[in-house]
Design a protein around this nucleic acid. Structure first.
Lengths: 256, 256
DNA sequence: CGTCCCGTTGAACAAATTCAATTACGGTGG
DNA sequence: CCACCGTAATTGAATTTGTTCAACGGGACG
């Protein structure tokens, strides 16, 4: 299977004014910003960070001095119980803001791990308050992002708490597909799907074996196809119905 | 069983400057505010609302034009699937801010229901952005509240996804107890516990019957006691260990 | 070619749900 | 004061869903 390159380069622009040439921000999924806001964001920004597939973006047990916006790649947030059981709290796509929760949680937070090679824009956490002061609009946008992320977790909690295995898988596939679609990661109906079944199991609160059997079943039913790390939804309506999950068209979201 | 009255009156102060006489805000759990901030909050405030036990604070399928701070009583956030299965997303105690998520979600949000009679301070959603502009600090505080609430949902998701029935109950009891303790709702080791087993089941993602059997078991083990709608934790350490959940001492939180 | 990771599958087992009563209790009307 | 009701808590039993255990296959890689 071959695919053209993703329109957004693997790394954010380098040089003096990287944010002004940010390809990610040009996507329709994101709200436009004024020149002044862009400048504020750019000065809030401290640099770029690369993390290879499987690497740690935020350590689960250490408060990170930085905030990030995921620029390219897939990542996820997770927590582990002391005996090793892991719960994936959510997946992260380009444009997602990372680390806000820790700002206010005294330790005891969550980890973030890259699934694919990932690139991130880093920001100094200590300058967050100054940003609110000088750019109230960006503060408001950050609240928007925090509220949106809570909504994602809310939905995820419904899945883990009240849906059965088949419904969980259906819901997750549609959810990830829709989000990827929004940021232009769908090509000819295929999305990169770099997760292994352990990721899915840990996200859905299922065992590895049962996840496998459930996914196999839905594939045999012809609802979706997985090939070489790429996903294609064959029966979106059937999956939405099964998962009782219908994503509405979304407004453009802010991006920091 | 008899208990003194809760120190915070059932309703916020009436009259010209209600926030200046707010008893809730005086609790150590909440950060102090400047006179200027208090005034801003007071002018952001539009009134008081009472909801009786079982009543709807926010309709699940209608965007509320108001935001609230719960002043007195217990409430919960929830979502229901189309076939009626309900997931409780979290419980609300005095001081909790309500409705922020909807600000940014195009419909498709969650409901809020009062468990006991409840009193709330109402705010005009449409003036939220103005508040961020004129009082960046309060904007920052609201972000704090949003991030904290996401953290609560994160923890809840771990519970629903990766803990077994006994662990879930243990975790929930300790969690509610600790939060109630923070806002002075614990009297002689007892907290009001107005939930029925269906609430617990819907919060934990368990069936009613299994919730009952699990709770019975933990009671027979002498870990906690429930009497006339009041809860007493008998073995906090055992419950924390079982639930693998250790609440750290918390910093005072902002209150709007 | 051997090893490791991952996906797949069957089988035994355990946890949780569903079904079906029964009991406890607060409130109401007689 | 007492019978009657409706709601919520309990409990046992049958059934289903999901987990654990074990084994095998294929592909990537050294």
């Amino acid at each position: 299977m071959k695919f053209e390159d993703y329109p957004v380069a693997a790394s954010p622009p380098q040089g003096a004014n990287p944010c002004e040439h940010c390809a990610l921000r040009r996507l329709e999924a994101f709200l436009p910003v004024t020149a002044q806001q862009l400048e504020a964001i750019q000065s809030f920004r401290t640099g770029t960070r690369r993390v290879e597939a499987g690497g740690t973006i935020v350590d689960e047990h250490r408060a990170s001095p930085q905030l990030f916006t995921l620029y390219a790649g897939w990542a996820f947030r997770y927590k582990t119980l002391s005996d090793g059981r892991r719960q994936i709290l959510g997946f992260l796509l380009p444009g997602d803001f990372i680390g806000l929760q820790d700002e206010f949680a005294d330790g005891q937070t969550h980890g973030v791990e890259a699934v694919t090679d990932a690139t991130l824009c880093a920001f100094a956490r200590e300058r967050l308050w100054a940003l609110f002061q000088t750019q109230p609009r960006l503060g408001y946008d950050i609240t928007w992002l925090a509220a949106r992320e809570e909504k994602l977790v809310d939905d995820h909690l419904v899945t883990a708490g009240r849906r059965n295995a088949g419904e969980r898988v259906a819901m997750l596939l549609m959810h990830l597909y829709r989000r990827a679609q929004r940021v232009g990661m769908v090509r000819d109906g295929w999305v990169e799907f770099p997760f292994n079944q352990q990721h899915i199991a840990d996200a859905l609160g299922l065992s590895l074996v049962h996840t496998n059997k459930t996914m196999r079943r839905l594939q045999r039913l012809g609802l979706y196809k997985l090939d070489g790390g790429w996903l294609r939804i064959l029966e979106p309506h059937a999956l939405e119905t099964l998962g009782d999950y219908f994503e509405r068209p979304l407004r453009p979201m802010p991006m920091i």
